[in-house]
Design a protein around this nucleic acid. Sequence first.
DNA 1: TACTAAATTGTAATCATTACAATTTAACAC
DNA 2: GTGTTAAATTGTAATGATTACAATTTAGTA
Lengths: 136, 136
Amino acid sequence: MDKYVKILKNNHIKITPQRLVVLEYLDKNCTHPTADEIYSYLKKKNPSLSKTTVYNALETLSKHRIIQSLTISGSELRYDIDHGMHHHFYCKICGNVIDIELKCPNIEKMKQFGHKIDEIHGYIKGICKNCLKREG
Amino acid sequence: MDKYVKILKNNHIKITPQRLVVLEYLDKNCTHPTADEIYSYLKKKNPSLSKTTVYNALETLSKHRIIQSLTISGSELRYDIDHGMHHHFYCKICGNVIDIELKCPNIEKMKQFGHKIDEIHGYIKGICKNCLKREG
DNA sequence: TACTAAATTGTAATCATTACAATTTAACAC
DNA sequence: GTGTTAAATTGTAATGATTACAATTTAGTA
């Protein structure tokens, strides 16, 4: 069975072609795209696709923890296939979001506060390696 | 000399009453308010205050690292006096943002990636202690 | 194959933030 | 103190991401 069909089935999510292409896009493009970037790309091969559907699919997938939304840029949400704990770096110049493969050693300590923890995000902001080189 | 005047002077920021009240508000209210919350409150005693001015003041103060903006909620920016490294907890039910006084032990490890690091944000999302109690 | 709840679609609305032009003011020189 | 000027403030209009909603279509099941 198709990989993405299986993921939706396992999560008891109704299988639709729209959800499948959104999920596939996120699985194959680790660029942390915005909803609009996903929509614009998929629209080419799926002309009937609606942007609202992309938003709906992203919400459904997020709810089931298949993907996660990143608030790192502050002006729009970006999306990421959920592949284990890692952090993110946001470059203020080029706007790219880069995975930072570090675990958070604080997770255990968080428990002491008594809140129920669902998500942990580590956002680092600055200027990326490439932009540093280019800008001198 | 007034505490807030001194902060602006030290940062070579032109002193205006609008900037002073915004800074004072953030210093005295550690509730991580939105621009609109700051504006609404200050407007009462400063009827001529414009929301654009609040945004401008927040941007100026952020640029000089006197305050920082939090992208934790995803739908609006929240502001915080910059009082040393700490994390933030966002309650998905009541919307409150709570300080989490934990240092990030990863800061040293970040250097290996070669990016210039300006800001580090630790965002934890879930359900806060109070909402857990209330909702059972 | 038919049924039904749920998903998709397109349009319109919302809301935080930014752009911009006109007016006012802080800081500085005299 | 007064005059000058660049910068700040103000109000309005524009932008842009996201959400609301109603009509249509469809996935999953009997």
